[in-house]
Write a protein that binds this DNA or RNA. Structure first.
Lengths: 335, 335
DNA sequence: CTTTGTAATGCTCATGAGTAGCATAATGGT
DNA sequence: ACCATTATGCTACTCATGAGCATTACAAAG
């Protein structure tokens, strides 16, 4: 604690000691999410294989009044995108989790954000919308349980368990695997995206783990478990996914991603894309309508075959009518 | 954006530009919570009236491996307390919200934490456990609706509404008041502690607002709305209270605050103290027992008059048995 | 014009969680 | 013995949720 000062000093003397905290950069990164064609997309700056990055920049105390305004500045500059909904996720500061190559670079404090936007063009150069399941192929259960789990992940996690010398450690690793990936009476929990990523990271099964480590991972080469990202950006994206999946259950945030008019099925498909699971159609409609979240416009959509669907719009008023605009769009049921 | 660098530069060149971010200090602060005698307490360092501070220190990139370990170091040094449960809350970076006097001091990024501990001694000098309702007297609804709301807060908030020149602004302020303090069909929501504090701050009704402002508050002197704290510490405490009240509903965090053995009524009183509302006794028991969160020890407690109560202990196993150890200790019901 | 496929939409039923209250049991104190 | 107090058991009601059946409305193929 050489360079840190005590509270007592701090309170009496508010001057900056020059050079004190200068080795820390503050990174602001945004997971900007959109849904198109029933796929959740995240805006990345593609810089070669396994070098995708979220839009980001460093906090500038002189020009940025708040962290969020700093983030908005960076994002607008890099992507030519106006952000609507923005939410702070978490601040990571772990030594060695922000490397390009092991042991390199300054210490970085990384503040992650989630942003939501409708599908839109006009992004800057080098930016692309990527399906977020490209980074987390084990998270999409809409069709079926992703085969990658049983084929690749579980066997390698079993090795991870065995590689522990102490029995306690083996048991606790086994428990973590059960809690993260389910089985043995435990159901899959779509919100545990970060927990799963961190487990795979610790087990050395994602490329970032290899990159950050001095030593090679135990138990063979890294698996092709989704595309890697620069710095801790995949960790931030995992946080964003989990937070969004959770938030959808009690706040009407999906509508930030919808066009002005949409059918209930389109809304459902969007929720399903994000949550990674299928929903019961009739119940979904009942839920949405009972909450008073939408109102019909009378117009019909004929995009799909079959009976035309009525188009709806989001009732923005609910945001000021009710304290917690229900919007439990996906059950909210705990177990 | 003068001193900030672009992504492209950053990715190619990971060196620190000396002097770049040196004007930012990173503050780590902890709201350490405990419950004794049916009152929630927070550990503060008392330094004179309206100068209470949470234990805190600055992040040191050299000696702190993670933000949390840095925080633990500071807290242990200042309070001689070993922390158990610790959770990151939020990172604040607003210019002008970390002042001692207006316009003073360096730019500070403030990372707030929530920590839970059993009532214990052995704290350092100057540290005291304060009832958290001393800082937020409008948050304790156990007895009745706090009189301060109708007597002082609502009238002054009404002035705040009137003081807006544009009609839009008046309407939106009125909506915020309804959402924060209820009324007109909207129920009180115990989790909105931060929203309420921020509203009072913006309306200039808490001392911190006066302190941070250049100009005097509109509409008269500041009200005695609870004790003020140093820097943004009351804001962090508000965040902690809201988070804890929410978290209790779906995680068995209360047990971090309980002694090894306790009666169900003691458990209930603790939950009530934190959530600020009364609960239905029989239902509370049923809930706790149905969740399998506790097991009886066979021993009886005769602390209170009346029929002796059985003593229970927390079943730590649930943490590894179930993915989401229910622990919906206070309903979890949304509206 | 009829058939077929597809989707939208309306309803019912069973289950379980949450709310509220009554009733009884077991103490200590007067 | 009676009363105050707390623990504890149990029931009735409401409402949210999960699952499925039935019907309606349209387009396209024959």
């Amino acid at each position: 604690m050489a360079s840190a000062r005590k509270f007592t000093d701090d309170a009496k003397n508010n001057e900056v000691t020059p050079g004190e905290a200068q080795t820390v950069l503050i990174g602001l990164s945004a997971a900007i999410v959109s849904v198109a064609e029933e796929r959740p997309r995240v805006l990345v700056m593609h810089r070669g294989e396994d070098a995708d990055a979220l839009p980001f920049g460093t906090f500038d105390p002189l020009s940025h009044r708040t962290l969020e305004s700093g983030l908005r500045n960076w994002v607008e500059e890099q992507t030519r995108l106006q952000l609507g909904y923005v939410e702070q996720l978490y601040t990571f500061g772990d030594r060695g989790r922000h490397m390009t190559r092991p042991g390199e670079g300054p210490r970085v404090l990384s503040v992650g954000y989630l942003a939501l936007t409708r599908p839109q063009q006009g992004r800057g150069p080098e930016t692309l919308w990527h399906d977020w399941y490209g980074y987390f192929p084990w998270e999409d259960w809409r069709e079926k349980k992703p085969p990658i789990i049983d084929a690749l992940i579980m066997p390698r996690l079993a090795q991870f368990v065995d590689s522990a010398s102490a029995k306690d450690l083996r048991v606790s690793r086994q428990d973590r695997i059960r809690l993260c990936f389910g089985g043995d009476g435990i159901a899959w929990d779509g919100e545990k995206v970060l927990e799963r990523y961190e487990l795979l990271y610790e087990a050395g099964l994602v490329k970032e783990a290899q990159r950050d480590r001095q030593a090679a991972p135990a138990g063979g080469p890294v698996l092709p478990l989704g595309s890697a990202m620069v710095f801790d950006h995949r960790r931030i994206l995992a946080t964003a996914m989990g937070r969004l999946r959770g938030k959808m259950k009690y706040r009407p945030v999906v509508f930030e991603l919808m066009p002005p008019e949409f059918t209930l099925l389109e809304l459902q498909r969007t929720v399903e894309a994000l949550s990674g699971i299928r929903l019961h159609k009739q119940n979904f409609r009942r839920l949405v309508e009972a909450q008073g979240l939408v109102e019909g416009t009378g117009r019909l959509s004929r995009k799909a075959g079959g009976r035309p669907a009525e188009q709806f719009r989001f009732r923005r008023e609910v945001l000021r009518e009710r304290p917690t605009p229900g919007a439990r769009l996906t059950s909210s049921r705990l177990r």
